[in-house]
């Protein structure tokens, strides 16, 4: 019970100090809107393309929202040494990191619903398989957050975290099948696509919104869970090795 008091208050503090700040809220709104606008301008198509576009926009909203915040909530706090206060508290490191990532996961989930709400006004979403979409959104938020965490714990400066995040994020826009199928990629790039977690999240979302999944849901979910476990273990290893010297 006492641990949960600590975890809840870490989450509440991060929400107040970081996530509910207007610039961060606007990040969640502006990014999906910009991508949606860009798509319509580029394709010149009508609203029938919304369902095709929605999985990709949802996935990048989660990816950019979560990875950007971890650089602040973890790297910045480590830099100004307020993170030491958490390391000195009697909370196991695993729970501490879950508390620190919970805010980013929630932020990612909320971000994902911005394009979905917009889409709901533009097209009929009644055919969507929410039983697959909702867990996929959750797992995409978790895996993206943990990807951000593993980067944030491997560097010392906020700008390093942002720069390294971009090395992963921007290629993922094109390699993970968000806006065009992986089969259209050059053959030599395809193995890289399958080494990226968002490929599996995006595949479930394509299946949930337009039935266009390539792999089975079971395989997608299993691989996403494995990525989550591996990235969490990597982050803990990184903290123990780099921050508890």
């Amino acid at each position: 019970m006492k641990r949960w008091i600590a975890i809840w208050n870490i989450l509440k503090k991060d929400m107040k100090a970081y996530y509910l700040k207007p610039p961060n809220i606007s990040w969640g709104l502006i990014f999906p809107l910009a991508w949606t606008g860009m798509y319509f301008i580029r394709s010149g198509g009508g609203l029938e393309g919304v369902l095709e576009l929605l999985p990709g926009v949802t996935a990048i909203s989660i990816l950019f929202g979560t990875t950007s915040m971890l650089a602040v909530t973890v790297t910045f706090e480590k830099k100004n040494r307020s993170f030491d206060r958490l390391l000195l508290s009697p909370i196991p490191l695993e729970l501490l990191m879950l508390a620190k990532t919970a805010g980013a996961i929630l932020f990612g989930i909320v971000n994902s619903f911005v394009p979905i709400l917009i889409a709901a006004f533009l097209t009929d979403l009644s055919g969507a398989a929410w039983s697959a979409a909702v867990p996929a959104i959750l797992l995409c938020a978790v895996v993206s957050t943990l990807l951000g965490l593993s980067i944030a714990t491997a560097v010392s400066e906020v700008f390093e975290a942002q720069t390294i995040s971009n090395f992963f994020r921007f290629p993922m826009l094109f390699l993970c099948g968000l806006f065009f199928p992986i089969e259209q990629l050059p053959v030599f790039l395809r193995p890289l696509s399958y080494a990226l977690p968002l490929t599996y999240g995006a595949d479930i979302l394509h299946g949930a919104f337009s039935g266009a999944n390539v792999m089975s849901y079971a395989l997608d979910f299993s691989i996403l869970v494995l990525f989550c476990a591996a990235l969490f273990a990597l982050s803990l290893f990184s903290i123990r090795r780099r921050w508890i010297l």
């Binding site: 006492k2 641990r3 008091i5």
Partner: peptide, 22 residues
């Protein structure tokens, strides 16, 4: 190394919560 964006009172309450105080 407390949190600049929290008030003095909030900082102390947060630190107390880290030790599981109700």
């Amino acid at each position: 190394n407390l949190y600049p964006e929290l008030t003095g009172f909030e900082n102390l309450c947060f630190c107390a919560a880290l030790y599981g105080m109700r």
